[in-house]
């Protein structure tokens, strides 16, 4: 069984994690806070955060919430994201939580917020736990 520190380090070791610029602010069992300073390289053609970044961040925070709880690797099966408001700069944060956990299938939900606390996006994801046996 991996420790919660092992799980955290595996996320931070991902080249894609650092390529986008994510930072883990809190990583406790079932309680995860992810931060992203918005750079221009993350912008869409309208000069706001690209929708793909929202999806990437939500997927990541849901996966982190699940792995911090289960200590088991997981893979995303489905992600459904509602975009509520655009954001151009500053820092955004994301949190997520497990809604329902089965032996192999976990469903989680999460939200993205701007630095004033306004919700930018909300989504729900279904994940499969990768068990060794």
């Amino acid at each position: 069984m991996k420790t919660i520190e092992d799980v955290r380090e595996s996320f931070e070791a991902s080249p894609f994690f650092s390529h986008i610029g994510f930072e883990i602010m809190r990583f406790e069992e079932g309680d995860v806070l992810l931060k992203l300073p918005i750079h221009e390289k993350l912008h869409n053609v309208n000069g706001t955060l690209h929708g793909g970044v929202h999806a990437t961040m939500l997927d990541l925070v849901l996966g982190m919430a699940i792995r911090s709880t289960t200590k088991t690797r997981c893979t995303t099966m489905n992600l459904n994201l509602n975009y509520l408001a655009p954001v151009a700069g500053g820092e955004i944060t994301a949190t997520g939580r497990i809604l329902k956990q089965g032996y192999r299938i976990v469903t989680a939900e999460g939200e993205l917020y701007d630095q004033e606390g306004s919700m930018l996006a909300k989504g729900i994801g279904t994940f499969k736990l990768i068990r060794d046996e």
Binding site: H19, G52, A55, D59, T75
Partner: peptide
């Protein structure tokens, strides 16, 4: 590219969501 691959060699689902957002948009 190597910088978009996860530590375990898999791809982030966000890459495909981004791709779909761009191609549908």
């Amino acid at each position: 590219k190597s910088e978009v691959v996860n530590e375990d060699g898999t791809l982030s689902p966000g890459l495909f969501s981004t791709m779909l957002d761009i191609v549908i948009g």
